[in-house]
Amino acid sequence: MQNHPIGSAPDYTNAFMAMSGLILFMTFFVIAAAVGYLWVFLTAFGLNKMIALISRKI
């Protein structure tokens, strides 16, 4: 007996990207509320440099 699904898997890329953006926004908001806007800037700057470093290696 075969129990294979018919068709391809649904594409959840847009939903993933939207939720990732929302979670990143909420993270920055919590950091800003807890520590201040300086730490939000430093965190965003650090993430930007880390992403740039990773993209150069790829």
Rank of each mutant, 00 (worst) to 15 (best):
F29P: 00
V35G: 03
F16A: 02
F28N: 09
A34F: 14
A15V: 06
Y12D: 12
F45H: 04
W39A: 12
I31P: 14
L24I: 02
A15Y: 06
I31Y: 08
A15Q: 13
L42F: 14
A34N: 11
F28Y: 13
T13I: 00
F25N: 12
A32P: 10
A34Q: 15
L42D: 02
A18N: 10
N14S: 14
V40H: 06
F41R: 02
T27R: 00
I23F: 11
L42K: 06
A44H: 00
F25V: 13
Y12F: 15
F25L: 15
L22A: 12
A15T: 07
V30H: 01
V35T: 10
F41Q: 03
I23S: 05
L24R: 03
L24V: 05
W39F: 15
F41G: 09
L38P: 04
V35Q: 13
I23Q: 08
V35A: 12
F25Q: 12
L24H: 04
N14P: 06
L38F: 10
F41V: 08
A32K: 06
S20P: 00
Y37R: 06
F45D: 06
F29Y: 13
Y37N: 10
V30F: 02
S20M: 07
M26V: 14
A34V: 12
F16N: 01
W39Q: 12
L42A: 15
I31W: 08
M26A: 12
G21E: 07
A32D: 15
V40Q: 07
V40W: 04
I31N: 08
A44G: 13
M17N: 14
N14L: 11
I31V: 15
F25P: 08
L24M: 11
F45K: 02
F41D: 05
L24C: 05
A44Y: 05
T43L: 09
T13A: 12
V30E: 00
